[in-house]
Nucleic acid binder design. Sequence first.
DNA 1: ATTGGTTTAATACCTGGTGCCAAAGAGAGT
DNA 2: ACTCTCTTTGGCACCAGGTATTAAACCAAT
Lengths: 197, 197
Amino acid sequence: MERIPKRQRHQQLSRLIEENPFLTDRELTRQLKVSIQTIRLDRLELAIPELRERLKMMAERSYDPVRSLPLHEVIGDIVDLQLDKSGISIFEIREEHVFSRSGIARGHHVFAQANSLAVAVINDEIALTASADIRFIRPARLAEKCIAKAYVRSSGAVKGKAKVEVFTYVGEEMVFQGNFVIYRSAGDSEHEGGGSH
Amino acid sequence: MERIPKRQRHQQLSRLIEENPFLTDRELTRQLKVSIQTIRLDRLELAIPELRERLKMMAERSYDPVRSLPLHEVIGDIVDLQLDKSGISIFEIREEHVFSRSGIARGHHVFAQANSLAVAVINDEIALTASADIRFIRPARLAEKCIAKAYVRSSGAVKGKAKVEVFTYVGEEMVFQGNFVIYRSAGDSEHEGGGSH
DNA sequence: ATTGGTTTAATACCTGGTGCCAAAGAGAGT
DNA sequence: ACTCTCTTTGGCACCAGGTATTAAACCAAT
């Protein structure tokens, strides 16, 4: 029995499940060539829950009633959201986002993160980007984590327009800055606490 | 036995599961005050899958956006391209591009089309968006075909920056307008045809 | 009273596991 | 060689949350 293979197997197991969380233990035995008991001991050690628990967690994450906004259509993970005030989202640059030649992110992905966040932070039934003035300060590269911070500068709940400023950072460095003007469906926002159902 | 309650119960059942897909049949019996067999017959009639299938479907739906992410390479079909002069691309607004609530396209998709075109029209090894000033003139809707036209206003092959103006139309109506400043890798444009494979 | 839609019950079986215990295998130390 | 320990495998009971099927009970109208 080789002592090394165990850790290797643990790594492989983690990787396999990460890239396909829908695998049953039985399917994993085929890929790793060990018994199903070993797979289960491994999951135990690695604290990887069973298939059904994984699916449930995924379903819950995508369902989350708190974030009633259409979040899965949003680019980037919104990790903090104070409606009509500010918000933060994280977006990791991956293979599919970059020019293969240079490894530099295509501008519209960085824009999409900022735009999604700017729209999400507006507390309204319908919010649409009206215009934007944006600057790409330095390129974002493959594997970098872009952290976008949005601040609502003038919510204009009555006027029907809100100004949102977004700054995107990689570490300490700013990579993107944008000023968004967002249309809002004017009226049912923080108008009063209660109006809508 | 009342004949009405059955249809009412079906409606209630559908509503309950819609607003909380995580309910087991056993939990549903408590809420509807009928036996578990009745619940199961009802689900059968209404073609509502069992809890685990529901969770799996939700998990799958929230999982595949990673692979089927629409924002891949160039957004829109480039149908005409005169390098360093002008270009045209067509992009059809589909389900995955709109707010499900309103059927209006998310701004970053319309931007992505324009941005892709602005970058493509620049005849250079590496071209990156430096900044942009954009306006969403009217919303683009589901199933509409967006036609973007880009014009290079100052190619500045030596300077390292180019200005590109993009107009996007649906039919006769303009939906988007943007002024892009594109960085170019200054010099090695069509320097000569060959370099890279 | 018989028929028919509806509801409930009972039972066998399924998947994808957990939990536990025992046995076998593989070194490493003495 | 023998022992000790870690790892792997196997077997069995059990669980949730079902499906599928058959049978019985309920209720009401013809």
